[in-house]
Amino acid sequence: MKKSQNTGRNNGRADLLPVGIVLAVLVFWQLIVSWGDIPPYILPSPIMVLKALFDEKELLLTHTLATLNEALVGFSLAVVLGMIFGILMGYSEPFRRALYPIFIITQTIPIIVLAPLFAIWFGFGFLPKILIVILVCFFPVAVTFAQGLIKADEDMDQLLKVMGAKRWQAFRKVRIPQALPSLFSGLKIAATYSIMGAVISEWVGAKSGLGIFMTRAMSSFRTSVLFADVFVIIVLSLGIYKAVEIIEKKIILRKYNIR
């Protein structure tokens, strides 16, 4: 009991460290801007960013909801597709060998190029945004899940074989639960990509969203609003990441007791 309390306290201290560093940077930043007489369109001070965040809260909220919607829908679809293809690649060697190189190629195409291309093909609506988010989120999910699934425990495989297990039975009862920790590390990577994917897709044109709001702020030199926008993006990305982590810890890992 005592031991767990101790580790808890240590974890608390470790968590505080990055917060402290960020605070120190913010203070430093504020001082540089105040003393260095830097014009706000080049570098706004943290306080100005905070003010912009507050002043633009209604507009920011609308744009945030638009982006969040795209990110969440795209992320969810990517998770479903990623898991399906992860299972297919994990189960079938020929399938994996056929698909894996193609998936890698899709990751080498710069999203910056795809975003305008998708806008040309699919317009400026919801669809091209979702497609971009799916494209960036799909890969980490499919690949980490597949890798978790092909990790074999030879002894376990042989034991199941002697029990008379069919291949699919062994896969479902052993490989899939075993691969969940890998899947979740992929989900966490995908979670952080999802907001970024949505923002990039909005850059080339959108009715609303943090990405289009960002370009507008940039072109009108309202740098403090741009920073406020970025701040919201960071918070959203961390939020989705944290949500995945909570699901991982609370539901899956506790139930399955892996790791």
């Binding site: 002894d155 376990m156 034991l159 029990m163 009862k173 892996i258």
Partner: peptide, 28 residues
């Protein structure tokens, strides 16, 4: 069919004792 056991216990960490024990019945 035979009963087979290895040095490694090969228990599934996410299954309870009972559901590990019943694995052969479940497979069959």
């Amino acid at each position: 069919p035979v009963c087979y056991m290895l040095q490694k216990d090969c228990l599934m960490p996410w299954r309870t004792v009972l559901s590990n024990i019943l694995m052969p019945v479940e497979i069959k």
